[in-house]
Design a protein around this nucleic acid. Structure first.
Lengths: 214, 214
DNA sequence: ACGGAAATTATCCGGTCGTATAATACGAGG
DNA sequence: CCTCGTATTATACGACCGGATAATTTCCGT
């Protein structure tokens, strides 16, 4: 007799991998990394578990791909927001605000980020992914800050510029954490306003200078 | 014939629970939260797996107790460091430095912290533990800042004080993350120096004012 | 010294994990 | 329209999971 096998449609490698990564992230965000099993992930992606090992060498590699996808998504949002600015001041301002407002401040994103961060000390591959993204973020910040001071007519030394970037990065990360972990503590624009005035303070600017009025 | 059962010694409830929690943290830090199974944990604690359910209602409750232990340990170090200061300025300075230097900046601690953070969105109990510790930390910071400005003769409003505490908290968290996740990027005292000058900037102080020279 | 409470071990259970392998259904190229 | 490569499913496997239970050892009070 006919075993009545499940019907399916083939997909291109690109979209299948994409589907599987999205399903992986959904699982981690909703049931934690403990519950993100190959069966759960495959089920959410609408395929069977065995298919995962057709596109990845194993579960670990899929998790790494998912980590890369999350971090790329976050930085892309901030960089895109910055690019929309016309002046260097505007770009810096937009970059900062983008990092402390949705969709970057999102509990789902934070769950994913934390789950991957906790793997950094255990798995060298995760550490490498983190380092690459951290350096890229820091460099982007350095460029934004350097351009800002140059446009302002008060260029700073490379050393000072780096120091500014480290502080700004810390402040942004910290506010992102606070705002996402304890969102009910902050009013609508409180986080963004706090970020802007704090950045002004860190860069030793006069209050309101980052508003970029002309 | 005699089955040759394993010999053991009894321990007080307090130390057994302590041992189990330490073993739990060791496992999470070394093999990730995935590998922190009841058998691994019990093995590391020098007992058999069944004993865990004699002291905790289940694995989840033990993880929660471990989370509490980690956070208490971190805040206790910082608070103890602050208490050693004689002036309000000194206490604030010590508190900040303690949070960006070992043993708080420790890769093991970070792994644990991240593993637990990733559970916050999934498990209400973890969320409650986080919130309690966050508020305690923020309140401690508020007191330190308020005392500092009062001692300085320039008291600030409660609203402004809270705003300062939020910014300082973000900066401290961010520097802690940066310094612990990417320790090779920072020289010996670079992180602490950066923290102090950044805090001075955030509080709109003159450079060096937090050095507390008399 | 010894009896009894309880701390600890030993063993078992159903379920699920990640992965390997074989069978099968799809869809493009001829 | 048929054929063939392969994307996908189905099933099996050994290991391990967290939890429950019963047997046993320890040690305190007397």
């Amino acid at each position: 007799m006919a075993p009545a096998r499940r019907s399916y449609t083939r997909a291109s490698e690109a979209e299948r991998r994409e589907d599987l990564i999205v399903a992986t992230l959904d699982c981690i965000a909703e049931v934690g990394i403990q519950g993100a099993t190959v069966r759960q992930i495959a089920n959410r992606a609408g395929v069977t578990a065995g298919l995962i090992r057709h596109y990845f060498t194993g579960k670990d590699q899929m998790l790494q791909a998912a980590y890369i996808a999350v971090m790329n998504g976050m930085t892309e949002i901030a960089v895109t927001a910055a690019d929309a600015g016309e002046t260097a001041c505007d770009r810096l301002r937009r970059f900062i605000i983008a990092n402390v407002t949705p969709p970057v401040t999102d509990s789902r994103t934070l769950s994913l980020w934390a789950a991957f961060i906790s793997h950094i000390q255990t798995d060298r591959t995760f550490a490498a992914i983190h380092r690459e993204n951290y350096l890229a973020f820091l460099t982007a910040l350095e460029v934004l800050v350097a351009d800002f001071f140059e446009e302002r007519g008060t260029p700073v030394s490379e050393k000072e510029n780096r120091s500014f970037a480290i502080s700004l990065n810390a402040l942004i990360d910290g506010l992102w954490l606070e705002g996402t972990l304890t969102p009910d503590m902050f009013a609508e624009n409180e986080l963004a306003d706090s970020a802007l005035s704090s950045v002004e303070a860190l860069l030793r600017l006069k209050p309101g200078e980052l508003a970029c009025e002309r």
